[in-house]
């Protein structure tokens, strides 16, 4: 049994005992399955225009359960397609920023000194790059591509994560159990992996759940500027944006994508809180 294995299996058990987190995880999982497989069962594709049903409200009779938009496209299919993009961008960009941010920040914070100086100045320089400029530059160089959005968002988000993690790692470095690990002959990699990182996961989990919605919103902002996903492909952000413009004439166009987005964010928050508690043995007992 390795220490990390022990930590994760104990945390997993604790997480399963946390009802809010379990339900959230179940909802998220079914949402993911729905956006992947849902479109297969729909008679319409995301860009098909149903000329007979322009901007029609939700109805079971005509098969458009979520209604259609101004161009007569089925909102149910579009919401699921949008979910694919938004969840992919949100989760992938967050995962990237978690991986780079934790590794980078923990290394800089634990070693400190000159290495920390150099690493953090690099972060400062990247911070100083204007985000929009970076995105436009990438678009010009490589053409419009959804993966460029991942790259651009990931390249910005890990900076925050790295700073947060570094601060935590710096204070953990001074803790007696880290000194004890050094006298126990643990190598630097082991100390970062077993002692530093597990003790900052609580903060990271909370920050990550805040990052996912932030990333989804950034993507919708890019789409709004015409830099994100290209029509007729869509995302939740783009759908919400469209819906907001037609809020008065066709409220369902806002209602459905917005509630999918909201449910996802709620579930991520509960899951993040649950994960934070589950990773901390002090909160684990008595639950």
């Amino acid at each position: 049994m390795t220490p990390m294995g022990g930590l994760w299996s104990d945390a997993g058990r604790a997480l399963r005992r946390n009802r809010a987190a379990t339900i959230s995880a179940a909802i998220l999982l079914s949402l993911i399955l729905l956006v992947i497989f849902g479109p297969l069962f729909s008679p319409w594709s995301y860009d098909y225009t149903d000329w007979g049903e322009i901007a029609s409200p939700p109805a079971l009779s005509n098969g458009h359960v979520f209604g259609t938009d101004q161009l007569g496209r089925d909102l149910f299919v579009r919401t699921l397609y949008g979910g694919r993009i938004s969840l992919m961008v949100g989760l992938a960009a967050t995962a990237v920023s978690l991986l780079i941010g934790i590794a980078y920040g923990a290394t800089a914070g634990y070693f400190g000194g000159r290495l920390d100086h150099v690493m953090m100045r690099i972060v400062d320089i990247l911070y100083a790059l204007p985000f929009m400029f970076l995105v436009i530059l990438l678009m010009v160089l490589f053409g419009r591509n959804i993966f460029l959005i991942f790259v651009a968002i990931g390249a910005i988000n890990w900076l925050d994560m790295a700073r947060i993690v570094r601060g935590q790692a710096m204070s953990l470095r001074e803790r007696e159990f880290v000194v004890a690990a050094r006298t126990s002959g643990t190598r630097a990699g082991g100390i970062i992996g077993r002692h530093v990182v597990p003790n900052l996961l609580g903060v990271v989990a909370v920050y990550a759940t805040l990052t996912v919605p932030q990333v989804i919103l950034v993507e919708s902002f890019l789409s709004f500027l015409g830099l994100g996903v290209a029509e007729p492909m869509t995302s939740w952000g783009a759908l919400v944006n469209e819906g907001a413009q037609n809020m008065e004439s066709a409220p369902w166009m806002l209602l459905f994508p917005a509630s999918f987005l909201a449910i996802t964010l709620f579930c991520l928050n509960f899951l993040g809180d649950g994960l934070r508690d589950a990773l901390d043995p002090r909160d684990r007992s008595g639950r």
Partner: peptide, 25 residues
């Protein structure tokens, strides 16, 4: 160390903590 609780990693079980020097040495 002085502070008995601060010197133990709160995320590790007692067995892992006591076993750590053995894993290394």
């Amino acid at each position: 160390f002085q502070d008995p609780l601060a010197a133990l990693n709160p995320r590790m079980s007692i067995g892992d903590i006591v076993g750590e020097p053995l894993r290394n040495f």
